[in-house]
């Protein structure tokens, strides 16, 4: 019962046990362990199943916007996630995100812009060519990954929506649907759903800000924020909001989910910064995943996650200890 075999990558699609069977098996197993031992650890372990691969996408590689560092393998990117809409365990999103429908998908655009309205995802993306950018992703929890994203520069899409001069910030919102997102059904969650994030207009228009619809050449796995998510590589991962359903241009600074829960721990800016510790842990170093038990993959965290050349000017007169 304790020895988990890894599914072989050589399996063809037809040989793979349907995911629902896997999920039931897991539930059955954790249930029986719980009864037998009274010591179960639900949700703590990463999901062991083979992550579902998306549809292939056409894209142009962007070497100028890509790091040459070793990429985090797909199975880790797609099985080790923070997406509390599906539970707080790292494996929960991979286990439960299949319960979310991502097609059809539409985004509401509102606020200070000339082109508000409800957009079908295809219509929003249609005029744009997909790019591939390999970015570092630094989680506020002191681990990091290197991920090849497929998507469109955020600025290209925002410009089409024609923000007015009053648009000083962009607000984003994740799908709120407890029927599809079991984490939102939890009675004990301190998150006031929906999950919300925001960027200052100049941050949103920065050349690095990216709207991803895929990774590793295929459409996003649901646990990674399908069908469309933000990627802001110089900020901690929680800024890169997933499964976006709303974009709003506004004059006042939006409130963001983690800031509302713990303002002393998570700021609006959330720029990667080794000089400003999280109150509960140091941000000086990170574990680049995959990391081993005997050979932990520690590395020094770099300010702005190494993207200072592109973004440091956005904050040049700001005290980043105060505006963390």
């Amino acid at each position: 019962m304790f020895i988990k075999k890894r599914p072989s990558w050589a399996l063809s699609q037809s040989e793979i046990t349907p995911e629902s069977v896997y999920l039931n098996r897991r539930q059955f197993m954790s249930g029986s362990v719980a009864v037998a031992a009274g010591l179960s650890i639900p949700g703590l372990l990463p999901a062991a199943e083979l992550p579902v691969q998306g549809k292939s996408l056409n894209f142009v590689p962007m070497p100028d916007y890509s790091t040459a560092e070793e990429k985090t393998p797909f199975k880790d990117v797609a099985q080790y996630n923070n997406f509390y809409e599906f539970g707080t365990g790292k494996g929960d999103p991979a286990r439960y995100a299949e319960e979310m429908t991502v097609d059809p998908w539409s985004l509401g655009v509102e606020g200070e812009c000339e082109q508000p309205g409800e957009y079908a995802l295809e219509d929003l993306l249609k005029p744009h060519e997909y790019q591939e950018r390999v970015y570092r992703l630094r989680c506020v929890e002191a681990w990091s990954m290197v991920i090849p994203w497929i998507g469109v520069p955020l600025a290209d899409i925002l410009k089409r929506l024609q923000p007015t001069s009053r648009a000083k910030y962009v607000y984003f919102e994740t799908l709120h649907d407890p029927d599809q997102m079991r984490g939102q059904r939890s009675l004990f969650s301190t998150i006031d759903w929906p999950y919300q994030e925001g960027l200052r207009m100049d941050e949103a228009m920065n050349e690095l800000s990216f709207l991803a619809v895929g990774l590793y050449g295929k459409t996003l796995p649901k646990q990674n924020g399908a069908p469309i998510r933000l990627v802001v590589p110089w900020k901690y991962g929680f800024k890169s909001i997933k499964s976006i359903v709303k974009i709003r241009f506004q004059e006042e600074r939006p409130e963001t989910t983690w800031e509302m829960i713990a303002p002393q721990e998570y700021g609006f800016y959330a720029n990667v910064n080794p000089e400003v510790d999280h109150p509960r842990w140091s941000q000086k170093r990170e574990r680049r995943l995959p990391s081993g038990l005997l050979s932990p993959n520690w590395m020094e965290t770099v300010k702005f996650n190494g993207y200072g050349e592109q973004v440091a000017h956005l904050y040049k007169d700001m005290d980043l200890r105060k505006f963390f």
Partner: peptide, 10 residues
């Protein structure tokens, strides 16, 4: 079995 995921130390 190395089945503790990409961050086994945690």
């Amino acid at each position: 079995a190395q089945s503790l995921g990409p961050d086994p130390g945690q």
